[in-house]
Computed example of a mutant assay.
Amino acid sequence: MIKSARTFSYLFGYLPIAAANLAKFKKRKTGMSQEEYSKLIHSEPQKWASGIMKRTGSQVEVSGLDYLPEGPVLFVSNHEGNFDIPVLLSSIPKPFGFISKEEVRKFPIIPSYMEEMNCVFLDRTDRRSAFKSITDTIGKLHEGHSILIFPEGTRSKGQGLKEFKAGFMRIAKEAGVPVVPIAIEGTSRIMENNNNQIRPARVKVQVLEPLTPQELDAAGVKAAQLVRSRIEQALADVQ
């Protein structure tokens, strides 16, 4: 109960500071390169996410950061729990946006930051929104921004890897960027498996070797399964 209160107090209590910093960052945008501004914007969510993870008392082990290539990439990760995003924001030094539920727009301040991070919003009840999210993501990648996607669509809550929705491969192929698989294990033990009470957990994040556009093209219709298999094997190795 205490860790839950501390975590959520920090989560929402930090928002006024984040809003003030965002205003400062926007003023500095003129004259900065896209890469410089992306790093500046990423620094605040990274700090916020690190503070959240510290208050959960969890230990996060990260491997494979040497695999991170230059330029835009499509990060493809399994989706175990609600703490996947804070864990990845605090662990991955490369700036990225992500595909998020449309409902997040109802929160204060957070959507403004997400827009600057080049996140894409998706309304799962609207097929046109789903199509637009794909084209928007391709556009972000073409502009040079990296994007994270959870192709399972919903949290597994530690109950095994779900099937991947195939749309992410269309994004990767049309954008012509590398796919960087990520295997994340242990986030469901922070909250989902504790009746939504926050408890410390050991979390392991594995950044796996990228798949180049050429490798994805060569895999053809099996490309999505290839990405999923690499993540599945990495998760199995943790057990």
Rank of each mutant, 00 (worst) to 15 (best):
M1T: 11
M1G: 13
S4Q: 10
T7I: 09
L15R: 03
P16K: 11
I17Q: 15
A19S: 15
A20N: 10
K29H: 08
T30P: 09
G31T: 12
Q34R: 14
E36P: 05
K39W: 12
L40Y: 09
I41V: 14
Q46L: 13
S50N: 15
K54S: 13
R55M: 11
T56Q: 10
T56M: 13
S58R: 06
V60H: 03
S63A: 12
S63V: 12
L68W: 01
L68Y: 07
F75S: 06
N82A: 05
F83K: 04
V87R: 06
I92E: 06
P93I: 11
F96H: 07
F96L: 10
K101A: 11
F107H: 08
I109Q: 05
I110Y: 03
S112G: 11
E116A: 11
M117Q: 14
N118S: 13
L122M: 14
D126R: 13
R128L: 00
S129T: 00
I134Q: 06
T137H: 05
I138E: 01
G139Q: 09
E143L: 10
P151S: 03
R155K: 13
K165F: 14
F168E: 02
I171C: 03
A172H: 07
K173V: 06
G176H: 05
P178V: 04
I184F: 01
E185W: 11
N193E: 11
N194M: 01
P200V: 13
A201Q: 08
L216P: 08
L216K: 10
D217W: 11
V221Q: 14
I231K: 00
